[in-house]
Design a protein around this nucleic acid. Structure first.
Lengths: 338, 338
DNA sequence: CCCTGGCACTCTTCGCACGCGAGTGCCAGA
DNA sequence: TCTGGCACTCGCGTGCGAAGAGTGCCAGGG
């Protein structure tokens, strides 16, 4: 096991490297942190830390930089989450409170996160799976063509066209609309299938085909998780990445365009708290030199979606985690109010 | 006036520079293009072109590169629009035909454009201003709270909450819904205001307040042009920009995040055909070293929105213009069909 | 009058040697 | 177990020289 002082040394290395972006040597360490020991001692500790794979040198006779494993130990054991200062909290709240609708909430959240962390922000739209139905509406666009509109408690609206097997009367439509809403309004998505399965039986034979079609479209909409959207912002912050540009930045930009990748990335993190995935812990290759800090947020106690930031592994973890957590908290509040 | 041969020289310079990304000298020019004259002659022509500001040298005794003015002359006089090859056209059509809804059409268009041109693609959602109303729906979420849903002929759906000054009965709601639709369905947005202005008079005094509120919300939605959205993609292509990275790419990424800027950029181009804005012709500073190639597209003969690409001034103009034009054409077709 | 070949000149780029400085590893001693 | 000292290794910046590409100008020929 690593001694207490060695952990201090690792912490100091991480902090210095994050600050200066340059490999940190033993002398500089003792000067900037009061470790109470000489550079020579630190060198021994560093050798041990390197032996165990927490730090590495880019080339012989250069300072050390933390490895992914080193960062992992740092966030797990050595660093807490840095809480936001009261003025910052106020600023977050003010900024988010101006939002007028769901799109705006998400858009503002992205901007805010990107600005606070100076990194790339990713915000998932509140997901359908855990939310409840506020209202289902059916509109007749043509005798045999309906539009199904689903409104969720998070303010999201999904619409689908439904081509009916047979013309559907205005009376039947009103009937279906009423029955549907009385059954599913306020219910969770996951409960909907069992609540509506016997619904066709309540209708005349002529209409059953249409009713079934409508229902299956509704169910499709509900389960269509891959329809999940997200918004990203702050990509300009990628330019602060490093000096060896094109190589680093390109795969990241490519990954960011693959919504599927990002959704999977956010989805994998199942912790209740802030999740940090460092470097090679990210499945996607393009993100091997980045860390992803994410957290769930939601209107009630439950998380309905995720948000987070993508940045270089060399990032200010405590600060970033604090910002992500705070923003998630306030977004949750805003969603609960509206 | 510039002689014919000098124009040929300019064309050759642009073509070579676009291909090689390196300043082009007189000797290389005569080797790669059969101009029928010697390097020395070309040098004289180059001196003249430089004198008039069409080309410049990055430093003494280097080759020449085109200036913005040079590119301008090139696209105006020297280059046509390169049509897509039949296989390419088929690929475009196939790719777009798989789309299931408006969001998907736009998303696919962005991907396609980015891939074809290997640049950053920008696609504006079909705008509301020129489209027509397909349907207006009113839902009662609570006794004094309505949701207004507007469906356009381009498949776009806008929703707004309406807080009523007084409770509004189910019968009144059905009445309003019916009257509203019979008046505005199929009409152009611009005609709507005059079509509904006397509508409150048809209702009981108790309901007039609510009706007016609903109507003004509807009108707001219609005129809210700044609600225009757009989608961008292919930002990874920015990495092919040049060698002097961070400086070039950063302002572009920043500009791309400002939707307002992009909308203005697209909005300014009023040509019926493909519009090209080169370098400093773009009002936004961050885009001073980029060119924007854009064109309108629409479901009928009329343009309802714009799409285009943003790339380095050193781009393959004929090819890009061809791709942009072709994609716009096919998207128009798809929209008309759905 | 325009084009051509030749020539001198200018700059950038590259390779290389060199010295400096930062940082390491190891060792002997407290 | 910590400390100070010492030799060693490299990367980085600098200066210099050669090479190469490209230009401008000029005199001669069609």
């Amino acid at each position: 096991m690593l001694s207490e002082r060695r952990l201090q040394v690792l912490r100091a290395i991480v902090q210095d490297y994050v600050g200066t972006e340059e490999p940190v040597g033993s002398k500089a360490l003792t000067e900037r942190h009061s470790l109470g020991v000489s550079p020579a001692t630190v060198r021994n500790d560093m050798a041990a830390l390197e032996e165990e794979g927490f730090i590495a040198q880019p080339h012989t006779s250069a300072g050390r930089i933390p490895t992914d494993k080193g960062y992992r130990l740092f966030v797990d054991k050595l660093a807490g989450v840095k809480p936001m200062s009261p003025p910052e909290r106020r600023a977050i709240q003010n900024f988010l409170e101006g939002a007028v609708d769901l799109d705006d909430v998400v858009a503002r959240t992205v901007r805010l996160l990107a600005q606070l962390t100076r990194q790339v922000a990713v915000v998932q739209y509140p997901s359908l799976t855990r939310s409840t139905v506020r209202h289902v509406e059916l509109l007749a666009l043509a005798p045999a063509r309906l539009m199904l509109v689903l409104i969720t408690d998070t303010g999201r609206v999904e619409q689908r066209m439904v081509d009916c097997p047979a013309p559907f009367g205005e009376a039947s439509l009103a009937d279906l609309r009423a029955r549907l809403n009385s059954r599913v309004a306020g219910r969770r998505f996951s409960d909907v299938p069992s609540l509506v399965e016997d619904l066709p039986e309540a209708f005349e034979a002529d209409d059953r085909g249409t009713v079934s079609t409508v229902l299956s479209t509704l169910l499709e909409t509900l389960v269509e998780e891959n329809e999940e959207r997200l918004m990203i912002g702050g990509t300009a912050n990628l330019t602060r990445f490093g000096h060896d540009f094109p190589l680093t930045i390109r795969p990241v930009l490519e990954a960011l365009e693959e919504q599927v990748v990002l959704l999977k990335l956010l989805g994998e993190a199942q912790d209740p708290g802030v999740t940090v995935r460092i470097g090679h812990e990210n499945a996607h290759e393009g993100l091997n030199s980045t860390s992803v800090v994410s957290v769930g947020y939601g209107s009630g106690g439950e998380a309905v979606a995720k948000l987070g930031v993508v940045g270089p592994t060399r990032m200010d973890y405590p600060g970033t985690m604090g910002a992500v957590r705070a923003v998630a908290r306030y977004v949750g509040q805003i969603l609960a109010e509206s």
